[in-house]
Write a protein that binds this DNA or RNA. Sequence first.
DNA 1: CCCCGAATGTAGGCGCCGCCAACAATGCTG
DNA 2: CAGCATTGTTGGCGGCGCCTACATTCGGGG
Lengths: 197, 197
Amino acid sequence: MPETRPYHHGDLRAALLAAAERTLRDKGAAALSLRELAREVGVSHAAPGRHFKDKQALLNALAMAGYERLAQTLGAAEDPALPLEPRLAALSRAYLGFAIDNAALLELMYARKHEPDASEQMAAAVEATVGSLVRVLADAQQRGEIIDGDPEELNLVTGAALHGVATFISAGWLTPEAALAGVEDLVHHLLHGLKPR
Amino acid sequence: MPETRPYHHGDLRAALLAAAERTLRDKGAAALSLRELAREVGVSHAAPGRHFKDKQALLNALAMAGYERLAQTLGAAEDPALPLEPRLAALSRAYLGFAIDNAALLELMYARKHEPDASEQMAAAVEATVGSLVRVLADAQQRGEIIDGDPEELNLVTGAALHGVATFISAGWLTPEAALAGVEDLVHHLLHGLKPR
DNA sequence: CCCCGAATGTAGGCGCCGCCAACAATGCTG
DNA sequence: CAGCATTGTTGGCGGCGCCTACATTCGGGG
């Protein structure tokens, strides 16, 4: 019997997002097409339009999901019991791990193409994600382990270095293995500086 | 009189690259289309194919040109007479300035989509560009102003932090003004570390 | 000098794509 | 259970990258 698929899919939106994330991981952002996704999921080429007003809306949804996953990943790597340096190193490893496993997705998350309305949700998601790092720095600051200054601003240094390394991996200038192996050194250099002491 | 354009353009390849760079700056990478470029330059839609085997080839050429311009920019900002910290700050300002004025182009330069053959030229261009930074660090190292270790590896810290900040600007998390104003602090933190001394 | 092949540009077509409008099936709610 | 909002389908529009066949121009060897 011809396996009569029901007219309504059930949860097309989630299915599309899942397929999109798979394609993103396997073939990159350029290979993402609404029509192809529709084919994969088994609906007509216009069905995705019911759930995402245009392609950018789907990309925004992907990015949001990415932020949630990243925040979770970082949260799981957080261990307040650890001393500052290994604590930062653990978070860094977690971020780089996410960047390695989700390179295309991360790029999407950094691509500000959202219209102003989606921008607010995004900003909140970013804030929640960056929070883990800032918290570690603020904690260390209270204990006098780190110099004074706005934690958000100090985080700019660590965050930038971290994401820079992630970019270098994704650009192929650095193997994932080398980057992960170098995390301890990176954190050490950030904390102690490049000048001799 | 109807201004009879000659059948042959003269230097179509250069004209295409120039138009592409303008479009890239004004409307972003997504708005780049070979057909549109051909229209702007006043040739038929298939003419670009004579000079670039496909769209990616044009993007690669754009990236190469970008590397040359960036290397020039960094070279011009280099001043070996300066002490380490302002010397690094000057280079950093130059890099961020380039990143601000050429956000889309820089993204292209970091997008490794080149087939293996173009990859070699790219790698060389990258090496030449990164050279300025590494040289500063190596110099400082010889004078004992910086801790020991492979200069290339130490440069990973500064380079990553720098490009990370560039990404944050391009993502809209940081205004260009704030980033440029923060360059001194950034360099200072990189050199002296976040730990109190 | 001129002729012929190489280089460069043109015209048209193929199969994708995103987006839109008109229509069909379904589910939900009063 | 009637009617309406939701969700999916079909078909079409213009634009895209790339390909092939053809036209024009350029330049170097007889």
